[in-house]
Amino acid sequence: MSNVLVVAEVFEGALKKATLTAVTFARDAAQRTGGQVHAVVIGQNVGAAAEELAGYVAAVHVADQAALAQPTAEAYAKVIAAAAKACSAAVVTAAATAQGKDVLPRTAALLGAGMASDVLGFAGPEGFQLRRPIQAGNVIATVEVTTAVKVVSTRPTEFEAAKATGSKGTVAPLAVDVGAVGTSYVKFAKVTSERPELTDARVVVSGGRGLKEAVNFGKLIEPLADKLKAAIGASRAVVDAGWVPNDMQVGQTGKVVAPDLYIAVGISGAIQHVAGMKGSKTIVAINKDAEAPIFQVADYGLVADLFKVVPELTEKL
């Protein structure tokens, strides 16, 4: 029992890039366990995603059924647990996306395994101690999963997307009877956007309460983001106020981003916000309060009235 099983995430038939970051962790883990990297692909009509993933791992197990068309944790956890047993997995891992966070702990219960959440990497070159953020990222804990099977969700921004191996792994169907489930899927109200995905963008422009009103998000943040081909993020305060969709929240309890450039406009820099963006390469803060905590993490701070300087910045870029 030494294989490492990656749980793939497929959206609208396509493999999510976050899954390839989990593959990177899985390869490192497989070196340590002396096993191979396997993957499980779950859904309906997911053959293409499975074939693609076979370019990255030794074996892909495909559970392709109408009953699995929608990712409900109740059904998916059963499939993942079955796949883990079928390939004698010592480690089961997935990216800590909304779906990974939802389904992996449930899988851990089915496997009787301990789970480390939102892992940043291994603690050392050998062994299996893992690092993970706690306390809104103010503390990094080194943790040990003591069960024979270990479940690990990984923070996508901490791992490069894996490169294809150059050879092709096996692809085989996984027969699982998910049986009766009490969860039924009703609908998904998708937020459509022409912009790059927040967690994957090279540049992120985020707005906070300093913008005063929802309309100013459109007037100031969007043109700046357009100019930089950036994704748009937000603080909790403005998401709560309903100015922007929920899934734009950056922070401890929202999305974690690590772009090359993060521009925080009218955001104070509460620890819960900083937890989601301090891994960015370059951070710019625009805030009229010179004492705002956001300046403690900013590489470049501009103490100014955002209503004046943001249009100017958009123009000068």
Binding site: A113, G114, M115, A116, A123, Q129, P133, I134, G137, N138, V139, I140, A141, T142, V143, E144, V145, T146, T147, K278, I283, A290, F295, V297, A298, D299, Y300, G301, L302, V303, A304, V309, E312, L313, K316
Partner: peptide
């Protein structure tokens, strides 16, 4: 515990930034 915290550390600090005068 199935997961044991064995050690705690501060996260790496970001290097101090600068304030810029204007856009």
């Amino acid at each position: 515990p199935k997961v044991r915290n064995v050690k705690y550390a501060e996260p790496p600090a970001r290097k101090a930034g600068v304030k810029v005068a204007d856009v």
